[in-house]
Structures are given as structure tokens and as C-alpha cells.
């Protein structure tokens, strides 16, 4: 199994706040990996670093062995950061891709607070995500010379929506769907970009146990069907423990534990982080 994603001592600093501190982790192809931790542990920040929303203060992110994001030796954050190995990356080339380039590489994501296209229908939401893979230029698109491509995109959208059992709702406004379906639509939209690595940010947030159950099997199904690798942030422990192959635990920006669900569950530091430590007065 080859490494699909690797984080090498990634640090993200906002002024004096270290949101992610020296995080190194990796995801192998075909795995389901979970990133867990208490609120404010820096999980979503790590996601935002991977997807290019933030420029990490230090460290590198590798996708399929190639560095896609590296630290900014000249960035203003760098001066604030001394780090463990401050000179490790400074000689390398600065890469600073925007989120759309990361998505084009094959990393798709969903959002913690659902971000669907508000004014569009369910169908158009997924169809819009296909725009990225379109070959036609704007002229052939406007004059409908590329209508075959448009038809193909519509077909693919139909297949995807039928697969996610959202086809009956295709003409509904995306934001008028119930919460669980909106999450499902967000995943469908992410799949429309044909990703190899899918990042799910709290996919089960706000779902009841029944829906969470369905989600677990759903993630497994799409993983096999689209041969995906999944990295997810999740708070529902039963879901995490059931479907993930490996788990990373973050607390206050630092990695405190990693391993299989069993190992993590019995780790004293994880228990402390979640339940708190009794203070010796």
C-alpha cells in the first residue's frame, strides 16, 4: 500500500495561537482514517491546511509522494515560528496552491457547517461540481458547441444522484432538504469532482443514531465503489471506532495518540484529553 497523503511536521500559527503544532501523519491508499480530538483541537485547521485554504506556517504536505504544500520561508509567520527543526524546509521551493488546484489533484472535501450552493437545486449543485473537469472553453460552451459534453455531465450527475438516492429530490432547492440529506448531497457533490482522497469534516454532525448507522455503511460503500481513501473528522465515537482503520488524536493542536481503534481507546492520554484529568490540589 502506498502513501496517498503525508503531513510532515505541519504547524499552523495564527498570531500567538498555535492551532496545529508539529503534526505528522499519513494516510495509506484505501484506508479510512479518522482524525479526532476535543473541540478546538485543530482538526479543521489541519483540513484547511491540506486543502490549501491556509498556508501552513511550517512543514510540508505530500500527496502521492509529491510535495503539494510547503512552508513559507519568506512568509511573515515564519519569523514567529522557531519550531523543532526550523531549517528543515527553508531550502526547498515554496509551493502555494489554491484550494481549486488541490481539488484538481484529486482531493475533495465536505464542510463542517454545510456549504451547499444556496440558490441552486440539488441537481445543479452536483452539476456545478462537474464544471472543473470540463474541457470546453467558454466560447464553445456559450454557443453550445460542446453540448455533448454538457449532456455527458448531466448523465453523470443523474447516475450520482440516483446512487445517493437523491434523484427524486433533484428539483428541490438544496437548502430546503432535511439535514441528513444535505450532508449526503455534499458528499455527492464532492464525489462529482472524481476524487481519490475524500476529506469528510464531521459527516455525522447533527444526525440521529439511525442516520449515523446508515452513514457508516454509506461511507464504506462509496469507498469501495469509487476506490476512495477517506480521511474524516468525527465526534461520534461509535462511528469512528466502527469504520476507521486507524485513528489520530489531536489535543490543543498536538498529536497525542495514534493507532487502531483498540489502541486509541485504551490510551491514557486520550482518556485524559476527553474526560479531563483530576487536579491534585
Amino acid at each position: 500500500m502506498s502513501r496517498i497523503l503525508e503531513l510532515d511536521s505541519v504547524t499552523m500559527q495564527f498570531g500567538g495561537v498555535v492551532a496545529v503544532n508539529d503534526l505528522s501523519m499519513h494516510v495509506d491508499e484505501g484506508e479510512i482514517v479518522a482524525l479526532i480530538g476535543p473541540n478546538g483541537a485543530g482538526k479543521t485547521t489541519a483540513f484547511n491546511c491540506i486543502t490549501g485554504v491556509y498556508e501552513p506556517t511550517n512543514g510540508a504536505i505530500l500527496y502521492k509522494g509529491n510535495a503539494i504544500i510547503q512552508n513559507h520561508p519568506s512568509g511573515k509567520m515564519k519569523r514567529l515560528y522557531a519550531g523543532l527543526e526550523p531549517d528543515k524546509f527553508s531550502s526547498s521551493k515554496v509551493l502555494n496552491p489554491t484550494p481549486d488546484k488541490i481539488t484538481k489533484l484529486g482531493i475533495a472535501r465536505t464542510f463542517q457547517n454545510i456549504r451547499l450552493f444556496r440558490s441552486m437545486t440539488v441537481f445543479d449543485n452536483v452539476l456545478t461540481a462537474m464544471h472543473m473537469r470540463m474541457n470546453a472553453g467558454i466560447f464553445s460552451d456559450v454557443f453550445r458547441i460542446s453540448h455533448a459534453e454538457e449532456a455527458r455531465m448531466r448523465e453523470e450527475t443523474e447516475v450520482l444522484l440516483r446512487r445517493q438516492s437523491l434523484w427524486e429530490l433533484r428539483d428541490e432547492l438544496a437548502t430546503s432538504l432535511p439535514y441528513g440529506k444535505q450532508r449526503r448531497l455534499e458528499i455527492a457533490r464532492a464525489l462529482a469532482t472524481k476524487p481519490q482522497l475524500l476529506l469528510l469534516d464531521e459527516p455525522a454532525a447533527g444526525m440521529n443514531p439511525q442516520e449515523t448507522q446508515e452513514l457508516a455503511s454509506f461511507i464504506h460503500e462509496i469507498k469501495d465503489e469509487y476506490s476512495l481513501t477517506v480521511l474524516m473528522i468525527e465526534h461520534h465515537m461509535d462511528l469512528v471506532m466502527r469504520i476507521s482503520d486507524r485513528i489520530y488524536v489531536l489535543d490543543f493542536g498536538s498529536l497525542i495518540a495514534e493507532g487502531t481503534p483498540k489502541e486509541v481507546q485504551s490510551d491514557q492520554r486520550v482518556i485524559d484529553a476527553y474526560l479531563g484529568v483530576a487536579e491534585n490540589v
Partner: peptide
């Protein structure tokens, strides 16, 4: 057209549009 949909996506949510591979 498809480009028009991309425009509307940017209007609705820039962050999501960018995450869907649309170069803002």
C-alpha cells in the same frame, strides 16, 4: 451554460466553489 453555473456557485459560496475546483 456551465460557466454560468460556476459564476452562480461563486456568488452563493466562494469557499465551497473553490473547494469544487472552480478557480475563483
Amino acid at each position: 451554460s456551465s460557466y454560468g453555473r460556476a459564476f452562480k456557485a461563486i456568488r452563493d459560496d466562494e469557499v465551497a466553489a473553490e473547494a469544487m475546483g472552480i478557480n475563483l
